[in-house]
Simulated scan of single mutants.
Amino acid sequence: MCKESLENRIKRVCDFIQHNLEGQLDLAQLSEVAALSRYHFHRVFLAYTGVSVIKYLQLARLKRASFQLAFELDMKIIDIALTAQFDSSEAFSRAFKRTFSQTPSQFRQSPDWPNWYRLYEFTLPSNNDAIAVSIVEFAHTPIAYLTHHGNPQRVYESAGQFVAWRKQSQWSPIAHCRTFGIPNGDPSTMKEDDFEFKICGSLQQNMTSVPDNEFSVKAGAIPAMRCAKATHFGSHDTLEKTIYALYEQWLPQSQEQLGDHPVFFEYLNLIHEVDECDLRTDVYLPLA
């Protein structure tokens, strides 16, 4: 059996889990999805991901629960627990604390995102599908933004502050305005202290300024420019794969020249609103 065949089977299982987090899943069912004998499936899964399939399933459910705790403050912990397939808030709390060293209440109040990230540093089978790229004229877009400085593993802290500002104000409501992210570079290639990430929301029509606020949200704009655009499907953790596909696969064949603006993202939906597998993110590569 070739390596690619096994990798595709494990990817199929990961995708199936992500689309069925609220279902009753077991090893027998998942081994059928992989088309592998149940006697070998769990070992093959562990070999390709570095975690057991049961651990992966629990981490996937707890990951969604983490975002609900951090960003859906009106959602009750018991409802989050039941959605994550726990029979009670007590069982959910025990599993959550055992995994993240914080209770759900502690995480909701002050998430330890760097520790959270360490739990998700396993490798998943990659998607090698070719990306679809279009050339677009991005229009000048007034925005409100909050700048995150430093550790990229703490971006969600800043995102939580920006979400809180959006819900409190009427200047960039989540339901009616676009959401962008603008990094100043690849965090894996720069010093932590040099990393910045602007979390942005488009402003409502005819609004070009933002009142002073406790969240340090400011007004700005994304300038008009030509861009190559590709849509990334799934986890934000794998955005780099789409970014580098633009640089490595598309750009050399396009005869285009790069523009003087960093790559940026438009989040077509948000992590606390949909399952991670259903995330859609437009990646914009500025052109001259």
Rank of each mutant, 00 (worst) to 15 (best):
R154G: 13
V163M: 12
W116S: 01
T123C: 10
L73M: 13
F107I: 04
D87G: 03
A91C: 11
A65H: 04
I80T: 01
V53W: 14
W113E: 03
L62Q: 05
A60P: 02
Y117R: 15
L59M: 02
N128E: 15
V44C: 04
L73Q: 13
F45M: 09
R43T: 13
W171C: 10
D79F: 06
S169T: 11
S93C: 06
Q58W: 00
T141N: 09
A95M: 00
A139E: 14
T147Q: 13
Q85H: 15
S134C: 05
P114S: 08
K97E: 11
A159Q: 09
D87E: 08
V163E: 07
I131A: 03
D74H: 15
S88I: 00
S172T: 04
A47W: 03
Q68L: 10
A164H: 05
E157M: 10
S101A: 14
D74F: 09
T49C: 13
R118D: 08
T83A: 06
R94P: 00
L82S: 08
Y48G: 01
S134Q: 08
T49S: 07
S93L: 01
F122R: 00
F107N: 02
H42W: 05
T99S: 03
T103C: 00
P114A: 06
N115G: 09
Q102I: 09
V163T: 08
G50N: 01
P173R: 12
L59Y: 01
P114E: 06
S169A: 10
P173V: 04
R64W: 09
T123R: 09
E121A: 15
E157C: 13
R166S: 07
T49F: 13
R61L: 01
I131K: 10
I135L: 10
F96V: 00
L46A: 11
K97C: 08
A84I: 08
Q109A: 09
N127V: 10
Y117I: 07
A95Q: 01
D87L: 11
L59V: 02
A70G: 05
G50L: 07
Q153Y: 14
E157Y: 10
Q161I: 11
L73G: 06
L119G: 08
E90K: 15
I77F: 06
H140A: 14
W171E: 04
S172M: 03
S172V: 02
S134N: 06
I143R: 01
I143E: 05
A91D: 09
S158H: 06
S101N: 12
H42Q: 15
A60E: 02
R98L: 02
A81P: 03
I131Q: 04
R98D: 07
Y120F: 12
K55Q: 10
D87H: 07
A144L: 03
T147L: 06
E72L: 14
Q161K: 15
D129N: 13
Q109W: 10
A47L: 12
K63G: 03
T141K: 03
N128Q: 14
K167S: 11
N115L: 14
K63S: 07
E90I: 12
H140L: 11
R166H: 06
H149V: 15
D74A: 13
A164K: 05
F96H: 00
T99N: 01
R61F: 00
F107P: 00
K167P: 06
V136M: 04
N128G: 13
W171R: 08
Y145V: 00
N151C: 09
A70W: 06
S169K: 12
N127C: 07
K167V: 08
K97T: 09
Q68S: 05
E90S: 15
T147H: 11
P173C: 12
F107K: 08
R108S: 07
R98Q: 11
